[in-house]
Design a protein around this nucleic acid. Structure first.
Length: 177
DNA sequence: AGAATGATCCTCT
DNA sequence: GAGGATCATTCTC
């Protein structure tokens, strides 16, 4: 069952916490892939220096200012596509980055895509192609700590993950500022 | 028009 | 611990 928009129309940290244990589903013509969310990061508002909205509205981050429940995908380092979900009301730029999944369905398709450079710019045209579902799974114990891979905004413990889960990104050592 | 930047990951030393 | 791959977006001139 797909999550209602109201799920995302809440404080970002609450949405981030509640996304753990939910299932991210992608349905394409040939294959359905899905995975349980086990690691997330919150990026909250223009006052968050690590948030893309920190410098005010631009063409790129316009989605974050829009209505909640929208997928915000961005290419970083010219290599990786990062998936976010926009949270909070229109005009309030915030999102939750989905950092790690435990594969559930379509593992073969995932492996196949890994070979080629994945360019899924058409990830979400149409209802249900890309969505987050509640399948009644309960996450384990949730831990919170500083976000990873950023040079600013590391003071906030806005990264949440399922403690001890093998699919969670490896712990990075601190990057000296 | 050209340069700088970055919410990453892998490999090598 | 350092550096490369690789490119959309934004900033600077």
């Amino acid at each position: 069952m797909s999550l209602p928009q109201a799920f995302y129309d809440r404080p970002t940290l609450e949405v981030a916490r509640d996304l753990l244990g939910k299932v991210l589903v992608h349905r394409s013509r040939g294959a359905t892939t899905s995975g349980t969310i086990v690691e997330v990061e919150a990026y909250i508002g223009e006052s968050d220096p690590a948030c893309h909205a920190a410098a005010g509205p631009t063409r790129r981050n316009a989605l974050m200012y829009g209505p909640p429940g929208v997928a915000y995908v961005y290419l970083n380092y010219g290599i990786h596509y990062l998936v976010n979900v926009v949270t909070e009301a229109t005009g309030s730029p915030a999102a939750v980055l989905i950092r790690a999944l435990e594969p559930l369905e379509g593992l073969d398709a995932m492996r196949r895509r890994r070979g080629r450079l994945v360019k899924e710019r058409d990830a979400a045209p149409g209802n249900g192609r890309l969505c987050i579902e509640d399948r009644g799974l309960r996450p384990g114990r949730v831990a919170w700590g500083p976000r990873i891979g950023i040079r600013v905004g590391t003071a906030q413990p806005w990264r949440g993950w399922v403690e001890g889960h093998r699919a969670v990104s490896g712990v990075r050592l601190d990057r000296t500022p």
